[in-house]
Write a protein that binds this DNA or RNA. Sequence first.
DNA 1: CGAATTCTCGTAGGGTATACGAGAATTAAT
DNA 2: ATTAATTCTCGTATACCCTACGAGAATTCG
Lengths: 267, 267
Amino acid sequence: MSERRSGEGQPDKTLALLWRNHRQPAADELVDRAARKRGAGRRPSLNVDDVVRTGIQLADDQGLAAASMGGLAKELGVGTMTLYTYVPSKDELLDLMVDQVLGERELPGPGEARPEDWRDQVEIYSEQTRAMFQRHLWLSQVSTIRPPVGPGMLAGREYLLSALLGLGLGALETNTAALAVTTYVDSAASLEAESRLVERATGQTNDAWWYERNDLWETYFDVDRHPAMTAIWHADGYQSSTREAAADSYRYGLDRLLDGIQSMKPQ
Amino acid sequence: MSERRSGEGQPDKTLALLWRNHRQPAADELVDRAARKRGAGRRPSLNVDDVVRTGIQLADDQGLAAASMGGLAKELGVGTMTLYTYVPSKDELLDLMVDQVLGERELPGPGEARPEDWRDQVEIYSEQTRAMFQRHLWLSQVSTIRPPVGPGMLAGREYLLSALLGLGLGALETNTAALAVTTYVDSAASLEAESRLVERATGQTNDAWWYERNDLWETYFDVDRHPAMTAIWHADGYQSSTREAAADSYRYGLDRLLDGIQSMKPQ
DNA sequence: CGAATTCTCGTAGGGTATACGAGAATTAAT
DNA sequence: ATTAATTCTCGTATACCCTACGAGAATTCG
């Protein structure tokens, strides 16, 4: 995890930005400056989407740290402070970046074609979410405790709930189950991404990292204190590749979790 | 998620520090400076444990950011650079802090009394891990992709594997299942801790945060695009308290995951 | 008493987000 | 054609972070 992301000043402003491209007619309030009837004043040289898009690209290509306000401004060819005309703060920009990529997942909307089996539907959520994390490794460094309440996040929750509703559990249990599934899927996908990120940042595979610590087994590992690990070792229970072990355990855990949920189905 | 933690220079040095209090007789190498036969030279005014303990305390009380090298030095009444006599870098200090608190979990060792049922044994792992995260909220901000390979981490893995071995699955499946369980338990516990951390840092409960965004439902939420959410809402499927919803989903998910694993038992 | 050893820590450098306020560009009104 | 109103632009300054380097202080051994 990460550190910041918290003290947003005006929720109204933030919501307006998040939903800027899904304009509900609503209200007499002016939602986006770009939409305002243009009157006096200097013309803007950018718009919010430019900033968000560039932020995502920079974070994808060079890591989240490269998507600093200074770095972004340089990339866009403007002064750092100019960005604050378009987004109120770095935190809110991050919210916008996150909701944007959450919305990129291709999840069938209401009324659109989808597999019959609820498990296959959950599978789509799982695969799309994993793919999203792989495309945008920096997501693993962003806290999701207070997620951007935008169209992308809502579409994800909607889809997963709709999939689980197919099981016929009660409303409350369906919601609880959906939370458990997102916790597992999102966390595992995040760990997977973080793993690649670390490999990229250090130029060292995780396997190589473990290999470097071989001393552990010879010098410090005490067989008597670790009989279970020793037993599994001798029974060839450890896979050679860290990556494969992680992928297998992800699959296995998701399948077992869904097994368990399925077994709660009335009848 | 967090940013750093990576390029440790010498794995040997790091391992020696991590295992400094579990001295294997081993080797002719001098493991800890404090253990060296004292000869000439100025006397140290601190030791590694002092630094680690103070780091944990500071992070507990005032957040991980307060456990900066500067902050720590001030707390200990020494110059910042003095700390580098005891730990090679901030990253390694963090490793030491993490392994220390991992080791605080009260998990029965080999030969010690434990519940009969394997599920009750996993329960202990789950509860001790959650309690650890609650005591040390900053853990949720530390990456565990390349964990400190010290006594605390190994004890945790050993215990969970020993619990799952009771099921009678094969070695490989036991290991895979253990990875899935730690992924779920550690991630959920981390999210729970992160949630409290954010509440503390912002002085605003998560419920209050959601309440502040009530506009969403009136202004932007489109019922036609979100039929599942709408249905669950009308069936009272949403709990009023974010915290309780999270706790319930944690319980539910863990129980279902263990159900699913249990069902793989041969026979 | 000198030499060897070890711990102590000031300085300097390159990074971060953003409050403030002056200046530039554009249009509407006179 | 001015002038006023409006809006965007962005330099500067502040207060943090980690740690390489190297000089100085403390201690013991010969």
